[in-house]
């Protein structure tokens, strides 16, 4: 198994993502520059947070047309697991791999704090190590994380069980139905505003993000018939 962390000009959570993969998954991981146009060597593709292309025009709008994104779309079609966090989530919506869009936080404030999330769907490739409806603590750091979609799309997300994480107790950014993370219909592309890669050790205040990475690893092993020794 090989993991790619995509780097765009302006990515800034790329190192956190890389280290989380190294620490928790113990898998070979590479940084892949946005101009790269071949992802065939990778099984899992991670789009980190940051401010790709300075967030010019709209968050993720320019990154979406990077050469590597064509490959990300191809990988999604092949069923590879793709996780977009924060700016990565914004890029996935701009690319049409996930429905909806991320708007400016309702408070207009940039929010950088620990948030409580409810795991609404633990039957995905990315969340199988969580319990259903478990409440976990994962930090957020965004100015535009206010998830929006039209009513028809929301009904579809609900009907297909595509809402994976919702904010618990407090909705920090005004997102529709408190949505913090969604998955595509096929179940191989997940986008979320909170940063699981920044909550993988107890000294980070929370290590609740760890199980996203163990879930991904487990999914890959199950799919590829690899026996685990853990």
């Amino acid at each position: 198994m090989r993991v790619a962390v995509i780097q765009f000009p302006g990515s800034n959570a790329d190192v956190d993502m890389y280290q989380a993969v190294e620490d928790i998954m113990g898998a070979p991981v590479d940084y892949v520059w946005h101009s790269h146009n071949d992802l065939s060597a990778y099984d899992i593709i991670l789009l980190p947070g940051g401010f790709s292309y300075g967030d010019y025009l709209r968050c993720g709008a320019v990154a979406r047309f990077s050469p590597v994104m064509e490959q990300v779309i191809k990988a999604a079609e092949e069923g590879k697991l793709i996780l977009g966090v924060c700016n990565g989530f914004q890029i996935l919506t701009e690319a049409g791999l996930l429905p909806g869009a991320l708007l400016r936080n309702a408070s207009l404030k940039f929010l950088c704090k620990l948030s409580e999330l409810r795991v609404v769907n633990n039957s995905t490739a990315f969340t199988q190590d969580y319990s259903q409806d478990e409440v976990i603590q994962i930090p957020i750091a965004h100015g535009e994380g206010n998830y929006f979609c039209d009513e028809e799309t929301l009904a579809k997300l609900q009907a297909n069980n595509q809402i994976v994480f919702c904010y618990e107790n407090e909705n920090p950014n005004g997102s529709i139905n408190g949505i913090a993370g969604i998955i595509n219909e096929r179940g191989n592309v997940l986008g979320m505003m909170p940063h699981p890669e920044r909550a993988v050790h107890a000294w980070m205040t929370s290590d609740d993000g760890k199980r996203m990475f163990t879930s991904i690893l487990k999914t890959w092993r199950e799919k590829n018939g690899v026996t685990t020794n853990a």
Binding site: L57, A61, T93, A101, F148, C149, D150
Partner: peptide
């Protein structure tokens, strides 16, 4: 394609 995101 780029200048507007017609979702929003």
């Amino acid at each position: 394609k780029l200048l507007a995101n017609t979702v929003i």
